[in-house]
Structure formats: structure tokens, C-alpha cells
Design a protein around this nucleic acid. Structure first.
Lengths: 195, 195
DNA sequence: CACCCTATCTAAACGCCGTCAAGATGATCT
DNA sequence: AGATCATCTTGACGGCGTTTAGATAGGGTG
């Protein structure tokens, strides 16, 4: 698995063949089959550690945030930065769930999935009367925004805009807060006057 | 190319090998090399017709929209519905640009790319004083939202929410307008009072 | 100690893949 | 008729995922 991560970081997802992993690990092509049922299961394992790392990154961002009005944006920025720093890993994290036609691990309804981290953050900061329905909608919308941005933020077309917004992080913050990650932020972005 | 599209629709992107295309077309495995430099070029061609079709879909949605305050959301809904109806094609459209480390065709700065369609729609509906910078930011944000939603809307986790929102299209509309595809819509979603 | 069991690995093969080189076929133009 | 060009085939190469059969080494038990 270390070998797999090394290949992923150095040569990208398309170079991640079972045989390449075996070579990198200094072992025969059939050896991985004594540890994983097939290639997909190895990718699952790699994706698993990816989701763990992303979860830690987001939790750290959540705990770092001081102002509740920017909390969600900060988590979003952390999410996208993670995807930028580990693009191949991020790709695997979504791809191997797509192949299984199932949810990505971080979006499951486990108590401590990354998705639930976001949802509970939404719930805690919103008015107490907010419905589960609205919390869910806000969470999904935020996740879509972050995922879309994560997949596209490397497009060179955005470079001029990034310069005008104080670099990568400023750009991410601008897009995410433009999309109004949660009602308070949206009201703020919208004119600041009332709500 | 018809054969390629057929395979894509019926068996998904992972089944789209050059040899399979040749088989489907009733031709030897080497025949495609007389029409395309390599597999990537064939995928490029497939992606090209995909972007054309998506562009037409979005243009139609734009012309169908009557209320300017929902125009952008309607274009977004059309975008996501296209991705849902042609998931394999949609995947190819982004993947083959990723492999070349270039922009997807629909996002280029061509006069009539899908991206520019959206950007000009934004520009025309916004206050005349709006800066290019703000138009660009709004376009990017909207595109991120639509792309993220397109990639995730098939997740089964969202099924309960979809039922509560009147089916697939209601769900898409809710998420996209929650994300405030443009200032007016955002003000509206936010409380309707002023702007 | 010998014995067996388990974990781990290797070697060799299968069929599929992308790709290329060489040559065939048939239409078009001169 | 002969040259030219587009189109296709055959056959091969190495890489891939995967399977089968067998090798090697360590630990526990008699």
C-alpha cells in the first residue's frame, strides 16, 4: 500500500497498475493477490486512508475556525486544498466508489464520516428550529460546490482570477463564499445589511 | 464513432477499449488507427460531440426560460440532467481533457463554448456596472456547483431528499438555487425583501 | 527432533489491451 | 494501364489483471 501511494503521488492514477505496485514493492505480480481480492480492493484500501486523511484535515479546519460565520467556508477551503495537494488520491477516492456503484466512504452515514462532520456543523450553527430536511439540503449543496471546485480549480483558465483574489486560497474562499456555503455567509455576501 | 457512443451508452466508460470499438464496428483492431492517431484522439472526438450536444441542451434551456430570475438555475438543471442522461459520455468529456492537462472543450474561451454561453448570460442579466471580474467569478462558481452536482446527484444517499422535493428535477432546482446561481436568485432565496 | 499448518511468495500461463509494421484491396485520377 | 490514395487486415510486441500450481519459511504440537 505504501508502494501504491508512492506511485499515485509520483506518476498519477493512470500508472497505478497492480503490476507496477508489485514492482515498486519489489515483489512478483501475483503477490498482491494474497492480500487483496483484486485490484479494486487495493484501490478501496488506498481510498480508505485517503478519506481518513481528508477527515482529519477537515476536522482540523473546523477546530481552527474561530468565527462561526466563516466556519463552513473554511472547511470547504480545507477540503479543496486537500484535493489539490493529493489530486491522484482524491480521484481514486471517488472513482473506486463509482466503480462499485456505491457511496464514497467519506459520504456514508457513519457517525464519523466526513459528510456527517459537515452536516452536524451545519446543524449546530443554524437556528435550532431548522429542519433535518434543510440541514441535509445545505450539506449536499455545500458538498457539491466543494467537489466541483476541487475538480476544476486546477484549470488554467482561472489563473487570472486567482491573481486578482490573492492567490489560490483567496480564490477558493471567494468561490465558496460566493456560493454561500450557509445562510449567514450568504446574507453577508449579499449585502450585509439585513437577513 | 457511432460504435464508440454505443459502447459508452450500453457498457460504460470502462468497456470503451479501442478493440471493443473496432469489434462493434465490425472491423479489425488496427483499423481505427487510420482515422485516429491513438485512443486518446478517438476519445477527444467523442468528447467533442458530447460538448456540442451539451451546448445545444443548454442553449435550448436558455431560450426556454421566461423568467430572468430563474434563467441560470434552469441552465444548471439542463446541464445536470444532461450529465445524468449521458453519464459515461459526461465522464469522457472531462477525463480526456484531464489526461491532456488542458481545459475541457466546453470551457474554452471560444466565442461559442458552453462556458461563454453561461458567462454572457450572467453578464446580460446583471447590473450593467458589474465588473468582468465579478462575472467571471459568478460563472466559475456556477459551473463548479453544476459539475459537482452532476457528479454526485446519482448517489443513493440523496434519494429521500429527492422524494421530499418533488423528484429529480425538483431536487436539482433546490440544490442549485440554494447555491444561489446568481445574485438575484440568491437575494430571493435569502428572504426576498430587498437586493 | 519431525510433523503439519499457515502465511507469504514465485513462475508460468491465459486472454485482453494499445500500438505498430507490413502488406492487401479497391477506388480515383492521369 | 499505371500510379496514387484511402482503407482495411494480419500478425506481432509488451503491458495489463487474473488464475493456477507450487515453492519457501516460521510457529506450534507430538
Amino acid at each position: 500500500m505504501d508502494a501504491a501511494r508512492r506511485i499515485l503521488e509520483n506518476e498519477g492514477p493512470s500508472a497505478l497498475s497492480l503490476r507496477a505496485v508489485a514492482r515498486e514493492a519489489g515483489v512478483s505480480p501475483a503477490a498482491p493477490y494474497h492480500h487483496f481480492k483484486d485490484k479494486g480492493e487495493l484501490l478501496d484500501a488506498v481510498a480508505h486512508v485517503g478519506w481518513e486523511a481528508l477527515g482529519e484535515t477537515m476536522t482540523a479546519a473546523k477546530e481552527r475556525a474561530t468565527d462561526v460565520s466563516t466556519l463552513m467556508t473554511e472547511i470547504g477551503v480545507a477540503y479543496v486544498l486537500f484535493a489539490q495537494q493529493h489530486p491522484a488520491l482524491y480521484r481514486v477516492m471517488y472513482d473506486c466508489s463509482r466503480d462499485k456503484d456505491s457511496l464514497p466512504e467519506g459520504m456514508e452515514n457513519n457517525e464519523d464520516s466526513a459528510y456527517c462532520l459537515v452536516r452536524e456543523s451545519f446543524r449546530r450553527m443554524a437556528a435550532p428550529a431548522i429542519s433535518d430536511h434543510d440541514v441535509e439540503l445545505a450539506t449536499i449543496a455545500a458538498w457539491c460546490a466543494a467537489h466541483g471546485l476541487a475538480e476544476m480549480s486546477s484549470f488554467r483558465q482561472f489563473d487570472p482570477l486567482k491573481e486578482g483574489l490573492g492567490g489560490e486560497e483567496g480564490f477558493l474562499r471567494a468561490v465558496l463564499s460566493h456560493l454561500g456555503m450557509f445562510p449567514a455567509a450568504r446574507a453577508k455576501a449579499n449585502g450585509d445589511g439585513d437577513g
